[in-house]
Design a protein around this nucleic acid. Structure first.
Length: 825
RNA sequence: GGGCGGGUAGCUCAGUUGGGAGAGCGCUGGCCUUACAAGCCAGAUGUCACAGGUUCAAGCCCUGUUCCGCCUACCA
């Protein structure tokens, strides 16, 4: 069994080899004949917008750790893979490509454009799959799904139609967030707010009766063209005499009323506010309350339209300047103050969004949210870390209706038609044949598509086969075991999956949500291409190996904190991988004559019991940490055990027995222990670093994959053999011996004794038992302390001249007679 | 405005029910000791943000202050 291996681990060749092997053996798919508890994860589907970033690497590494562990623990495991069509984002990518050819999507037309996006989807999808394979993830590729594939599209239609039928989806004329660049409505969540330095402009509106002027404050003077009122607080005594009077809108000349509305904050600005129902959310609502006209003065590009008169065609910001000039000239501009305020931007293209009124489709959220709130409150779904529950409640308790229609081309068409004759809206899965109200047969189909997150919300059950359930077995994987995701999509995705799962499956979609952090650079800065601090997963895997990369991510994943990743750190863990490699190499090199033996046939030494006890503690700690999803604890516990306990101490302690040939049983014992410890370590390490562990495992067990090896079990005879609770003190004694060795080494260093030099050491301790213990373990001290003459005495002893130390009641004296200490000075 | 998280060794961070202040990297010194120089041995380094309080005992619990980050809101 003796084998020779190179001294440095070479990840590249190894990784490709084993991934292929696993695929060929079909180890990623669930075992239909296995009668075991199910463990299922559905992947957060990556967007088909290009390639994966480090956040994906983290997300999928953590999922793979759970999946691989559970597989080894005997569960019937399914990890569903799939991708998201990512409506706006993907459309933008393809539009940018077209722009390089000086084309727009309109040049192609809808049909051609969508074809082109499908082409891109193929390309991007392949890249994503390859990256994930490179990362070593063990998802079931045979069940790949796409949010726009046939089955999922059918599910989307079905859900839409049912919700519409129940009045939970409606079409309405409301104010929404409009992105003038993407040319589509956005949901509230898709708007990012950023603080901008702006101004507060004070405008003077004259009273129609000539009795004076009323000053309003605004950040957007250009919207005055669409003003249809000025509001004051009903209890504000300064203005109560003006309520009901008319103002003359400067420049425009239109008459607008002064209204009273408690929305107005008397302390802010002048206490009176201009009302533009068509271009501001609050004004819109005030407009409804007071039955005001909505005057739209901008078009879909956020340019002024014909209602803006001479400003028509102007960009909104340009128009602002011109209007201010004109107001100034007319004496309507009172003053301008600097003002910081937050402005909404499109989360996909960062353009400033424009509130606009239009016809859109909405999902009524309150009835869906209530059961989803109680699912968390009742503990049916657990959020890890728990602190996110507050955030969840906060949003869910104040949830607003969800605008789901998008005016883009890439996505699920809304299954609605309009009768060309009577304008009746028809919502159904199939094309209508006959108008139910006028029997007309010609219809205009809805051109809007659905928000991407609408189909994502159905992901946990559509990927498993709903509504057709082509494979009956998959049904039993719902609810899934855990969802692993970032906090940034808690509302976008997690909350909506819970709502839809409860609505359509009548059950939660997952029992637990593990929410991990964002990956930042080593100084905590967000990674971005423009800052140049991006760590690319592929480059990193190329440079340090996939295992080192995965181990780094895992070791840094502590709950409730962002992950700061530096190359230095990855390099450090690369060294750990190499350490594993070399320790394994050492074990394999010393297996001559090895035979697996029953414990009973072995002659265990204190060092053996000590390492077995440490292994046992590690198994308990690691298994527990995985169960609690404390990933950093998993990685660091294994690191500490393997490097510092196994390599630094045990292997050194075991070397004399491995190197000699006289005492066969001593040798066999040491061999059995190192193999036992190595195998158990490899198994626990495998979910984090699958490649190197498989490589070594198969040197011990040719053509038996570690992927399906049994997870370490502390009940096993081997591991229960050293029990510190029982009378056996060998483990504890070994701990004392280690301290003594360390003290001897310290003294050596202090005295500047060359590491190669063998020295004389005298030990003295109270009590015959203690003396016997030291005598029993003297070989360890001699070997690792480089001592060739160790004397052990009871009591104070008569210690000769020398340097002394004291450890746990043991007096240590290094004999300096005969030592050449001249180099000390 | 509201909420959450965080301020621990030069850097990045652990610290699970209060009792020993820790890891990795970096740094210093010594070693090619027959697995590993991507290594081995030894070492230095901290008013645990600040101020009070509870306690025999506080990095950990309570109150206040301050700085940083994030989320959220109808900041005209």
């Amino acid at each position: 069994m003796k084998q020779n291996l190179p001294t440095t681990y070479e990840p590249k060749t190894t990784e490709a080899k084993w991934y292929k092997y696993w695929l060929q053996k079909g180890l990623f798919a669930p075992n239909p004949s296995l009668k075991a508890e199910h463990y299922c994860i559905v992947i957060p589907p990556p967007n088909v917008t290009g390639s994966l970033h480090i956040g994906h690497a983290l997300n999928n590494t953590l999922q793979d750790i759970l999946i691989r562990t559970k597989r080894m623990q005997g569960f019937n495991v399914l990890w569903v893979f799939g991708m998201d069509h990512a409506g706006i984002a993907t459309q933008n990518v393809v539009e940018r490509q077209l722009a390089q050819e000086n084309l727009s999507r309109n040049d192609l037309g809808r049909k051609e454009f969508v074809k082109r996006v499908w082409r891109w989807k193929q390309e991007s999808g392949d890249a994503i799959v390859n990256q994930l394979k490179r990362l070593g993830v063990s998802c079931d590729w045979s069940r790949e799904r796409f949010t726009m594939d046939e089955g999922l599209s059918r599910a989307v239609k079905k859900v839409f139609v049912q919700l519409y039928g129940e009045g939970l989806i409606y079409r309405g004329h409301y104010i929404i967030n409009w992105c003038p660049r993407c040319h589509t409505a956005l949901s509230d969540l898709e708007v990012e707010y950023h603080e901008l330095d702006g101004h507060l402009y004070y405008l003077k509106y004259p009273l129609a009766d000539g009795s004076g002027k009323l000053t309003v404050a605004t950040t957007r003077p250009e919207t005055m063209l669409g003003d249809t009122a000025v509001a004051v607080h009903p209890k504000d005594k300064r203005f109560s005499h003006l309520i009901g009077k008319q103002l003359v809108l400067p420049i425009v000349g239109r008459y607008i009323p002064i209204i009273a509305d408690s929305f107005v904050t008397p302390e802010f600005g002048t206490g009176s506010v201009k009302v533009t129902p068509a271009h501001d959310l609050n004004d819109f609502e005030m407009g409804i309350r007071h039955n005001l006209q909505q005057i739209v003065v901008m078009d879909s590009d956020a340019k002024m339209n014909e209602r803006a008169g001479k400003y028509a065609g102007m960009d909104r910001l340009e128009c602002r300047k011109k209007i201010l000039n004109e107001l100034q000239d007319g004496g309507f501009l009172d003053k301008i103050e600097d003002y910081k305020h937050s402005v909404g931007h499109c989360y996909r293209c960062k353009t400033i969004i424009e509130p606009a009124v239009s016809d859109q489709w909405f999902v009524k959220m309150k009835p869906l949210a209530e059961p989803a709130i109680s699912a968390i409150r009742q503990g049916e779904i657990e959020l890890v870390p728990k602190q996110w529950e507050n955030t969840y409640y906060d949003w869910m308790d104040n949830i607003r209706d969800w605008c789901v229609s998008r005016q883009i081309w890439w996505g699920h068409r809304i299954p609605a038609w309009y009768c060309e004759k009577c304008k009746q809206v028809i919502v159904q899965e199939e094309d209508p044949a006959l108008c139910p109200s006028c029997s007309n047969t010609t219809f205009k189909p809805e051109t809007d598509v659905l928000d991407t997150w609408f189909s994502s919300a159905l992901w946990p059950f559509t990927t498993l086969g709903w509504p057709d359930w082509p494979e009956e077995s998959l049904k039993s994987f719902y609810p899934t075991s855990v969802l692993v995701t970032g906090f940034d999509i808690l509302f976008f995705w997690v909350a909506r999956m819970i709502m839809m799962g409860l609505k359509f499956m009548d059950d939660i979609p997952f029992r637990r949500v593990y929410i991990h952090a964002l990956v930042r650079d080593e100084h905590g800065k967000k990674m971005s291409k423009s800052k140049g601090n991006v760590i690319d997963p592929l480059d990193t895997m190329e440079a340090y190996g996939t295992d080192a990369f995965r181990f780094s991510l895992t070791a840094l994943t502590t709950q409730g904190r962002d992950i700061c990743l530096s190359e230095k750190r990855i390099e450090g863990y690369r060294n750990f991988i190499n350490k594993i490699w070399n320790a394994s190499r050492f074990c394999l090199m010393n297996l001559e004559g090895y035979q697996a033996q029953d414990i009973a046939a072995l002659k265990l030494e204190p060092a053996d019991k000590w390492i077995i006890d440490k292994l046992k503690q590690t198994i308990i700690g690691v298994s527990d940490a995985i169960e609690k999803h404390e990933f950093s604890r998993v990685a660091l516990g294994l690191y500490q055990f393997f490097w510092h306990e196994f390599c630094d101490w045990y292997l050194e302690l075991a070397k004399p027995r491995l190197y000699q040939a006289d005492d066969q049983i001593a040798r066999t014992t040491a061999q059995n222990i190192i193999i036992k410890v190595l195998e158990n370590s490899l198994k626990m390490l495998h979910p984090i670093i699958p490649f190197v562990t498989e490589e070594i495992w198969q040197k011990l067990h040719p053509d038996e994959s570690i992927m399906v090896a049994k997870w370490p079990d502390v009940q096993e005879e081997w591991l229960s053999l050293c029990d510190t609770d029982k009378s056996d003190n060998d483990c504890k004694n070994m701990g004392h011996i280690i301290l003594i060795i360390e003290e001897i080494r310290r003294i050596r260093t202090m005295l500047n004794i060359s590491p190669a030099k063998r020295i004389k050491v005298h030990l003295a301790v109270q009590g015959i038992q203690a003396v016997n213990m030291l005598k029993q373990n003297s070989a360890y001290i001699e070997n690792l302390g480089k001592v060739d003459c160790l004397s052990i005495a009871q009591g104070e002893g008569k210690l000769p001249h020398g340097a002394t130390g004291l450890v746990d009641g043991v007096n240590i004296c290094v004999d300096i007679l005969g030592l050449d200490l001249t180099q000390e000075e």
